[in-house]
Design a protein around this nucleic acid. Structure first.
Lengths: 264, 264
DNA sequence: GGTGGACTCTCCCCCTGGGGGAGCGTTCAG
DNA sequence: CTGAACGCTCCCCCAGGGGGAGAGTCCACC
């Protein structure tokens, strides 16, 4: 039987943290003295404490740690852990993207962007849409586009695109629609016909990987405002050249179109 | 002049977050209407907002973002940013360590460790000591050891070691001492003679990189408790074989000694 | 058998960087 | 001139801790 202080020394977890884990039903002391409230641990709990410690170092939420600890099957448990490691990879990707974007921001801007005003007619497409979290967009896009390609096949008549509600960026969640243009849109699974309304678009093209795309967004926004216009409705993206076309990110071309209207 | 909502759409920062940044004096609106309290922004502030957005994605604290933004010299600013990227690298290293440790924990334990009880005599060494944060230990160790090696040179009589207060692990900060054994310890810079007191040590050897060392700590702790002993005083580590000796982490050998005393 | 110091208890407030929502004031186009 | 959209402040919430107060407990030593 170990006091909380001894257990703290043996596990390298602070006393406070151990109490918190008790409260959170993550790591219950083997014995709690009913009259004094003193917590007593046993050495068998050291490995459990260490697993928690490691998982917390990986920023696994306490609730997920609890779930992992309560999973008796080692195989299932390994899967849960692997899921978290995958999430870590995703975080890493976003970190890399942010670093790339930051570099672009801190460099002096070489050339002003070219913006074009274009009247876009209404367009009927094969679409997949959903309300998504901003951080999940990439994953969601991959799945949706795979389903679209399977449904449309060779009948595709142009590059893929998407329409993203502004709330997606402002409130971190919002409506997203990705599409493939095709003459007769099918209806299977999540894929269904949709009509993109006619809009007046301020259009520019972002060259390179998506990491720094927010910078282009900012430049487009500046252009819109300086040309006495305002933003209305969801932003459009068209993936003119993307990972499906070439593995060289520097060659990617993404058209960004922001619905605008002239303000007096 | 842009309202907070328009600025939010242009920068992909939520209205709430923009208000928070105003409050934190990170990104002040160009104009605040005194009677209504309405915030108004200008397009020139878009790049600044984006820099903040990127830095936050990299988990740079708001206070540091503020410092970076207020640094006019681009060179100095680049240094500050580079520092943060370095910190990201460190986080990454710790993540890798945690993953390695986790794997070792989840694997069934192959062999029980060998623990030896040893009466360690007092020892006079060349030392560097300080109160450090747990997360800074690695960096601090590298600097301290470099200084020690420069001061002691060829007069070194054994492998390097360290003595780490338990508070370092329990409260995330505490006293640390690293040393090189030598006959006549010099006194230069942070290097000074120190005496390690005689203690009774429970000693085991951790093989491999430091990532999974906490597992060995746990096993040592279990042994100590099961042999009716208790922990007293700072833990000792001796780096028998380390990165200075071989670049193969699998060959590293770290001796861990925990001062113990027999309890009745 | 005391006693003092180390240890432990609970409780409350603090931190960061946000989100949700209430209740009310402002702007502006139809 | 009115209603919807938008903006304001204020308060409470989250995770995952840390600091410290004030009081109770344990135990080794005298």
């Amino acid at each position: 039987m170990l006091t909380i202080g001894e257990f703290s020394r043996l596990t390298h977890l602070s006393v406070r943290t151990l109490r918190r884990y008790h409260e959170a039903a993550l790591l219950e002391p083997a014995v709690v003295d009913e009259t004094t409230g003193y917590r007593y641990y046993v050495v068998d709990q050291i490995p459990t404490a260490q697993v928690i410690h490691r998982l917390r170092e990986l920023d696994v939420p306490l609730s997920d740690v609890r779930q992992i600890l309560r999973t008796p099957d080692p195989g299932v448990r390994a899967t849960l852990v692997a899921d978290h490691l995958q999430r870590l990879e995703d975080v890493l990707d976003r970190t890399r993207a942010a670093v790339a974007s930051l570099r672009r921001l801190l460099e002096p801007d070489p050339a002003p962007i070219h913006v074009e005003l274009r009247a876009e007619p209404a367009q009927t497409v094969a679409a997949v849409e959903a309300d998504v979290e901003h951080r999940d967009v990439t994953t969601w896009y991959a799945g949706a586009m795979a389903e679209l390609e399977a449904a449309v096949g060779a009948a595709v008549t142009g590059p893929p695109g998407g329409s993203y509600d502004n709330a997606l960026f402002e409130q971190e969640r919002g409506h997203a629609l990705v599409y493939l243009p095709t003459a007769t849109p099918p209806r299977t699974g999540r894929v269904h016909p949709a009509t993109l309304p006619a809009v007046e678009l301020a259009v520019t093209t972002h060259v390179g990987e998506h990491a720094g795309i927010d910078v282009t967004y900012g430049e487009l926004g500046t252009w819109v405002v300086e040309n006495a216009m305002s933003v209305a409705g969801p932003v459009r993206e068209v993936y003119l050249v993307g990972p499906r076309d070439t593995s060289d990110p520097a060659a990617w071309r993404t058209e960004i179109g922001w619905p605008v209207f002239r303000v007096t």
